[in-house]
Write a protein that binds this DNA or RNA. Structure first.
Lengths: 112, 112
DNA sequence: ACGAAAGTACGATGAGTGTCAAACTTTGAT
DNA sequence: ATCAAAGTTTGACACTCATCGTACTTTCGT
């Protein structure tokens, strides 16, 4: 079986503001969202420009998925990521846009 | 001297998204912002409906002030708080509104 | 002058979490 | 069959931060 290969996605209506802000407060996660937001196509986990190890990246993707911000699906060995923009915007109007454009103005600063 | 009685307020332009999100991720601080946002008048620290001790509240007000979200000034022994809405909206368009209305839909859940 | 009220400052503490390395799993290519 | 590529899982560790109590400061009444 590869049922485990289909990660669980929450109903966006069951996601809380608390969860979303906890997800977006991390610079690495916000960078993932920004890159997704600026890309016309979905992006594989390994194709992101991140400054952390693979296992740490996995952690960040899970947090974003559980916050209802991204959808993940497998293509071969690659895990693809897409922004759940419409659903999310419906639940939290204006929030994603505000954070993304704010982040665009002041890029994420990695710790030294 | 009571120079120390005038707390330092940052120029909102020097505030980073990171700082703002770190400020807004805490439920108590978000509650402060929501209460201020729904009030026509400024509110003294002690007049807020908060579920933490006085010293903890002081900490939260400082974080909000340093994130450019509120302005504080003394009236007698009371420290008044006002939302720096216009300045903040100019720096981070839509962010405050999005968070406040999202928080209004899903009120801050206090830990048990 | 004295005391109460409103906050602030200072440690100390406990829980959370971002980080990594190492071992493992699944898929695709040779 | 074998091997490499792509992620995941599992501990473990370090560091941050929300919280509180106590002591202190400033202001306002009486």
């Amino acid at each position: 079986m590869d049922t485990d290969r289909v990660p669980e996605h929450p109903d966006v209506r069951s996601v809380t503001v608390q969860q979303v802000l906890e997800a977006l407060v991390d610079p690495v996660r916000r960078s993932i969202i920004t890159q997704l937001s600026g890309s016309p196509a979905d992006i594989a986990c390994g194709a992101f420009d991140l400054s952390v190890s693979k296992s740490t990246a996995t952690h960040h993707f899970r947090v974003l998925r559980e916050a209802g911000l991204i959808r993940q699906y497998y293509v071969g060995t690659s895990r693809m990521n897409s922004l759940r923009r419409d659903e999310f915007d419906d639940r939290f109007p204006g929030l994603l846009d505000a954070v993304v454009s704010a982040d665009h103005a002041t890029p994420a600063q990695h710790r030294p």
